[in-house]
Design a protein around this nucleic acid. Structure first.
Lengths: 190, 190
DNA sequence: CACCGTCAGTTCAGTGAGTGAACTGCACGA
DNA sequence: TCGTGCAGTTCACTCACTGAACTGACGGTG
């Protein structure tokens, strides 16, 4: 673990948090986990991350209890966010909001909405319609005004991730094995 | 910049944010800036970070508009958070909250309070007393129930940072030059 | 049963950044 | 002129990331 192995500061929870999610790629892996990406290969191609690094990061995240590793015995493995991992959402949201505010003049690249009533979420994660703090499984993410359509043809996984969809919902690619069984089962997430 | 130079994802503000604050040490530098640490040497000793790395990180943060570099001509330089840098506070707060929740069983290592009325801040940064979202300069930070007193004698800067104090307030060490003039001047921060 | 594709994960040489300690240069003050 | 405190640089060393190729297990197919 190159970066965050040990931040010596014992009395700073920020440093402790960085030891878990502070390395390069780690937070992007977590983001993709929120987006519903669960498989090793999908993460590798999606992020463009060296597979060796991905292996290390996933091991760390599983060891820290951020992800669980489900091996179905048929050679396919699924990495799922635990409650502890889901609790990282405020961090991810805050970082997306900051990037939107200062590096996306046309507006947010992704809008977050309360799936129940379609209300936009403010910076605290509260629904503008019902006023409640939307729990993660009820959040829908979709392209916002600052989204820039790419001209290159998206691979199936990226295409899935681009359209409006709920967080934690597994991506279902028709042509692969995973579309078969686990579809309606994992609905509202953990 | 080893880590965050380029995350290729053009449509993710999270990736863009990580390019700025995703490298090792960077977020700890920002944290110390919130704590009032402003000088190169203080940051170096406080964080235990190699000076060469600190130089690079500060350059990046200044270039990105997170910090400003004030050279008083007398050889002393002050790095101050800009508005853009202050806007990172929700990220820092969220990460401290997550670390407190999962790695500090005795409770938060640092409590955040609204300096006006002493109300504790909840996870959204709202004051329990007045209900308002406390702006950064009005936040007081102090040791919380999970704080572990060290047995080693604290250096002056660490001692300053441990006690209750308002964010952005400059640290004033009596024995050094900085205590002279800029004391009452930079009160409520930027 | 050999063949093929998919999948997770490993191995390996090359490289680039972090690490730690020592050093430079500047501005005071005595 | 000497000593001190400061910001920042230099340098050799090490280690983790990078990228590509490889391994091994599983399942389907003819």
């Amino acid at each position: 673990m190159t970066l965050p192995s040990t931040y010596p500061d014992r009395n700073c929870s920020l440093a402790r948090t960085l030891e878990v999610i502070g390395e390069r790629w780690t937070l992007l892996i977590v983001r993709d986990a929120f987006y519903g990406v669960r498989r090793f290969g999908d993460l590798a191609t999606q992020l463009g991350i060296p597979r060796a690094v991905l292996t290390n990061r996933l091991k760390l995240l599983v060891r820290e209890g951020v992800l669980t590793r489900d091996d179905d015995g048929a050679g396919t493995v699924e990495y799922l966010l635990t409650d502890k991992g889901t609790a990282l959402w405020p961090i991810v949201r805050a970082m997306m909001a900051w990037g939107d505010a200062f590096y996306s003049p046309a507006g947010a690249k992704r809008d977050l909405r309360h799936d129940r009533d379609g209300g936009l979420l403010d910076h605290d994660g509260r629904c503008e319609e019902c006023g409640a703090a939307a729990p993660v499984p009820e959040i829908r993410i979709e392209p916002g005004p600052g989204y820039q359509a790419g001209n290159s043809p998206l691979d199936p996984v990226s295409a899935m991730l681009t359209g409006p969809r709920r967080l934690l919902e597994p991506i279902a690619i028709p042509s692969t094995r995973q579309a078969d069984e686990r579809d309606g089962s994992t609905d509202a997430g953990r």
